[in-house]
Computed example of a mutant assay.
Amino acid sequence: MASPMSARAFLDALREEGLTVVEVGDWERHNRNHKGPWGPVHGVMIHHTVTQGSRRTVDLCRSGPPELPGPLCHGVITKDGRVHLVGHGRANHAGLGDPDVLRAVIAEKRLPPDNTADTDGNRYFYGFECENLGDGDDPWPEVQLEAIEKAAAALCRHHGWTERSVIGHLEWQPGKVDPRGFTMAGMRERIRDRLKD
């Protein structure tokens, strides 16, 4: 069981991992904590945005659409590899997912199929939205993939987690496909190798 990082520790961990971090507005206090608890945290969830254009993407992830108020994540990783912090605390990113997947993440074991959706993931996961159309054709620049790797590794390093604490939205909630365009197995290998340093 891990308590969520403070906003300052979150920012420092990302920078210490070598990331370029952009602080957006009052991100340290922007959250959905009034809708439910935040923590304990058990892992990191990776998403794609289905958007194009960094400024538009960051704005959307900070504010959210009318039907799903923001923040929609904690950090937005744009194609240039920068991490834009848009929230700290509970965020509308994970939704309901599979309790068996959560148990596997906590135990850092192989993930089972996600076939139910009745567990509040917004409480338990840090979330990074990554700028990409999610159509399988929009490219993932290496600088962006490296930023995803570094951001997830930074949080794993802080909490003493392995790469098995990092999952994709598609591994949590039935019907989700994100992130599309790279595999989470491959990303976890990258994170594992980084954590050896």
Rank of each mutant, 00 (worst) to 15 (best):
D80E: 14
H84A: 01
L85F: 00
L68A: 14
D80K: 13
L102G: 04
C61S: 12
G87S: 03
R103W: 05
V86N: 04
V101C: 01
L102Y: 06
E67Y: 07
V105E: 01
H88K: 07
P71S: 05
N92G: 13
A91Y: 05
G89C: 03
L85S: 04
T78L: 05
E67C: 00
S63N: 15
R90C: 03
N92F: 14
R103S: 14
V101D: 03
C61V: 10
G97W: 09
P69E: 08
R90L: 02
L96W: 03
H88I: 05
G97Q: 09
L85D: 05
R62C: 08
N92W: 13
R90I: 06
L85T: 02
K79S: 12
H93G: 14
L68E: 12
I106C: 09
T78V: 10
E67H: 09
P66R: 14
G89N: 02
G81N: 04
D59A: 15
R82V: 01
G87P: 03
A104P: 00
D59E: 15
G75P: 00
H74L: 10
P99K: 08
G87M: 02
V101H: 01
L72G: 01
I106A: 07
L68Q: 14
I106D: 08
S63C: 15
L72K: 02
P71F: 04
R62A: 15
V101M: 03
V101W: 01
V83Q: 07
P99Y: 07
H84S: 07
I77H: 07
H74A: 09
H84T: 01
S63K: 15
G87E: 07
D98G: 02
P99D: 10
G70A: 11
R82W: 06
D59L: 14
L60W: 06
A104Q: 03
I77E: 11
P69Y: 02
L96C: 04
V83W: 08
D98L: 05
C73Y: 03
L102H: 08
E67Q: 08
G81M: 05
S63D: 15
H74D: 12
V83T: 11
C61P: 08
P65Q: 13
L72N: 08
P66V: 13
H74Y: 10
L68P: 08
V105C: 05
G97Y: 06
E67L: 05
G95S: 04
G70L: 11
G89R: 06
D59R: 15
G97H: 00
V105K: 02
G87T: 09
G95A: 08
G87V: 00
P69C: 06
L85H: 03
D100T: 04
R62N: 08
D59N: 13
C73R: 07
G75Q: 10
I106H: 03
G87F: 02
D100A: 13
L72E: 13
P99N: 09
V83G: 09
V86M: 06
P65S: 14
N92K: 12
A104F: 00
G64C: 12
P99A: 10
G95L: 09
A104S: 08
L102I: 09
V101P: 05
R103K: 15
H84D: 04
A91E: 00
G64S: 12
P65G: 13
G89A: 01
R62S: 12
H74Q: 13
D59F: 11
D100C: 07
L96S: 10
V83Y: 10
V76S: 14
L102S: 03
D100Y: 00
A104H: 00
C61L: 15
P65C: 06
T78E: 03
G81H: 05
G64K: 12
H84F: 07
